[in-house]
């Protein structure tokens, strides 16, 4: 009497396909779980670190590899999922496309627009599907805001502000700390919101940005983007990897007939852990949903692969998000606005 019938997370509506995952830390683990939930088989877990690959492979009974190129070209693989540092995306995309595999690539698509173009060309030539994981488009709260705007609840929108971030990801040795590689919070985190602003409100005209990109005395990045859209709207996007702890997302959209506000701190679940002497207590806000946004992006991707249904994110969308983030970084460097 105290047990619910087990909720079926996996839809099981998809044909079984074999997935090779390249990059088995952080987001790689999330994508493995989502792909498995879609009814796909995680056949290969590849990572430069054998330990990372083995740990994840054990969970899915997958083959362990340390060579991503080999994984991408393995004959029995249908889909290659890429969750490696951004600067390595292109080479794995090209390898997977060449081997005729469909590709799921974590955002940012690539480190430069030039690389994005090559990636798109490689997928086109090989006639494979290439998806970029701009997962914010699938977040329930962002969908809800979009729906309210489209329902006309705030009239014509004129101004939008999105704030996202928390502590610096990874340790000092993580690739995120290499700003040339990761692009810092502007390129890796604020790119989510640049994509969403464009998705909902339209094309950008120019961007001005300030970015901290500090290594001493702490790893800290803080990014303040000021974006003018072609339709005249102004967007503020603030990204932080400068907080000592936590993670927060805030959004505000102002129209001529109302406003929308969202703050992730107003979560349905929050916890305070008693200090047991093992270290500081943690506060973890949560907003559980039956189907995670990561699950929904995978469902969307697989529906494209198997049923040829156009997904919410195209590779061109991924490329324009990179273009915006690249422009923001250029602006931060030069102190001038960058036209798009």
């Amino acid at each position: 009497m105290f047990s619910n019938r087990q909720q079926q997370v996996a839809t099981g509506k998809h044909k079984a396909m074999n997935v090779a995952l390249i990059g088995c830390s952080g987001m790689g683990r999330v994508h493995a779980e989502m792909a498995a939930n879609c009814g796909l088989k995680i056949a290969i877990c590849a990572d430069k670190s054998r330990k990372a690959a083995s740990e994840l492979a054990a969970k899915y009974g997958a083959k362990v590899m340390t060579d991503g190129f080999k994984a991408a070209a393995s004959p029995d693989i249908d889909i290659v999922a890429i969750a490696t540092p951004t600067t390595t995306h292109l080479m794995f995309i090209e390898a997977a496309a060449k081997a005729g595999k469909h590709i799921f690539c974590e955002k940012p698509f690539c480190r430069t627009v030039a690389e994005c173009k090559k990636a798109i060309a490689a997928a086109k030539k090989a006639k494979v599907k290439l998806f970029v994981g701009h997962v914010v488009r699938y977040f329930h709260e962002f969908e809800a805001m979009k729906a309210q705007i489209e329902a006309g609840k705030i009239g014509e929108p004129g101004y939008v502000k999105i704030y996202r971030g928390g502590l610096f990801p990874g340790g000092p040795k993580s690739w995120f700390a290499n700003y040339e590689m990761s692009g810092g919070v502007t390129f890796d985190c604020a790119i989510h919101d640049m994509d969403w602003v464009r998705y909902v409100f339209g094309e950008p005209e120019r961007i001005f940005c300030q970015a901290l990109m500090r290594s001493k005395p702490h790893l800290m990045d803080y990014s303040q983007s000021n974006i003018r859209l072609k339709n005249g709207m102004i967007a503020t996007i603030i990204g932080t990897w400068a907080h000592p702890s936590g993670f927060q997302v805030k959004a505000e959209i102002c129209g001529d007939g109302g406003m929308i506000q969202y703050d992730s701190k107003e979560a349905p679940i929050s916890t305070l852990m008693r200090d047991t002497g093992d270290g500081p207590s943690m506060v973890v806000p949560g907003s559980p949903v039956a189907e995670s946004p990561y699950q929904r992006e995978w469902e969307d991707f697989i529906a494209w692969v198997q049923d040829n249904r156009t997904p919410r994110v195209t590779p061109e969308d991924g490329m324009i998000a990179v273009k915006m983030a690249e422009a923001a970084l250029k602006s931060a460097k030069t102190g001038k606005p960058v036209k798009l």
Binding site: Y159, Q210, A211, L212, Y222, N226, T236, I238, C254, G258
Partner: peptide
């Protein structure tokens, strides 16, 4: 020191 500032008359009448 990098500073961003938003100056607006954006609050809705119903705010």
């Amino acid at each position: 020191i990098q500073v961003s500032h938003i100056a607006s008359w954006s609050r809705a009448k119903s705010y």
